[in-house]
């Protein structure tokens, strides 16, 4: 991966971010506080971030950023995207269907997406892992797990 292009892009992005932070932080004022109020620390950090991102861009343009960046593996990146999408769907599913059903589906789908094709085996693993995790969290640690539409009303 071209580290120069990445570093320049990241540096410019951070410079914009630091300017936005500086601007917004300037609005935080409080009465009865000395000169160094709630705006001071974020603004100081924004200035430091701006300087550092400037240095990053400068180094990149001068050809000093020679660190070998890890290249993305296309197939792997797609799998990351797919699993992330499944995780986001899982969060919604958990609120609707509760922990048990959605977790079994989540584990099954992720294992399938990662290349496990033996349906019975991954179904069995999904059910048993969900059962163990539910037992530990809900029963032993007494953490209230989402029950979705199956929630008991008292």
């Amino acid at each position: 991966m071209d580290s120069r292009r990445i570093d320049t892009g990241v540096g410019l992005g951070l410079a914009v971010l630091s300017s936005v932070i500086y601007f917004f932080a300037g609005q935080y004022t409080a009465f009865g506080v000395n000169t160094y109020g709630p705006n001071f620390f974020p603004q100081l950090l924004a200035v430091l971030l701006f300087i550092c991102s400037g240095c990053l861009v400068f180094n990149a343009l001068r050809g000093n950023s020679k660190a070998e960046l890890e290249g993305f593996h296309k197939g792997g990146l797609i799998k990351v995207g797919v699993t992330l999408a499944i995780a986001v769907l899982y969060l919604f599913a958990m609120q609707l269907l509760g922990f048990v059903i959605s977790s079994m589906m989540f584990l099954y789908l992720i294992m399938f997406a990662l290349g496990k094709k033996q349906h019975w085996r991954i179904a069995l693993i999904s059910i048993s892992v969900t059962a163990v995790v539910w037992f530990i969290f809900a029963y032993l640690l007494m953490i209230p797990m989402p029950e979705g539409i199956f929630s008991r009303s008292y």
Partner: peptide, 13 residues
């Protein structure tokens, strides 16, 4: 391929 989804689930929980 089995371990990673389990860790993923534990991270979420």
């Amino acid at each position: 391929k089995v371990l990673t989804p389990v860790i993923f689930l534990l991270c979420i929980l």
